[in-house]
Design a protein around this nucleic acid. Sequence first.
DNA 1: GATGCGATTCAC
DNA 2: TGAATCGCATCA
Length: 198
Amino acid sequence: MVRFIGIMKAAPAGFFTSDALACARALIGAELAFGACAGEIVETEAYLGEGDPACHTFVRAKARAFVAENPVGTAYVYLNYGVHYLLNFLTGPEAVHGFVLIRALRPTSGLPIMVRRRKRRHPRELCSGPGKLTAALGIDGRHHATDLLAHPEFRLCLPEAPAPVEADGRIGISRAAELPYRFTHAERQEWISRPVKR
DNA sequence: GATGCGATTCAC
DNA sequence: TGAATCGCATCA
């Protein structure tokens, strides 16, 4: 089953050289595909490598090493709570790097596969959270520090026109949670992980 | 070496 | 409301 999203174009080389906030916003409404599974990105978060206490680079030496050793666009896949893999992309020109966390998709293709991987039947339970969507797509630690954009099974297409976006605070963090660095698709609120706080 | 916690999800 | 479960930072 493939649902029409709109006119899409492959993300241009260098897309992730923009800063994390611009990338996170621009990815709303984009199509992300991995293997036979795909979805429309409806929720992202930005983490800034400078001045953002919630960014991994703020406390984790390994994250700083990752930034120093990998080119922009590299996948940063993080295992959190020892349970769930979270998918990020390294962004920004050198020195103003950051990360974009992919937090939710509206599934568009490969739903039977997602249902099997997730052990959930309802479409809204498949990709409505950062740990859920990696499980649904089959992304895990094997993809950490790899160039997913060059992966033959991976595809990222941007909408011809920007999607309507709402910004509010990031989810599940204790530091700098009030910064409006979460972005959601204004017309796809039923597919996101948690309601927008007004 | 021990301890504590985290960008979560699910069952109880 | 709490368990699952692991990497990493922090402190002894």
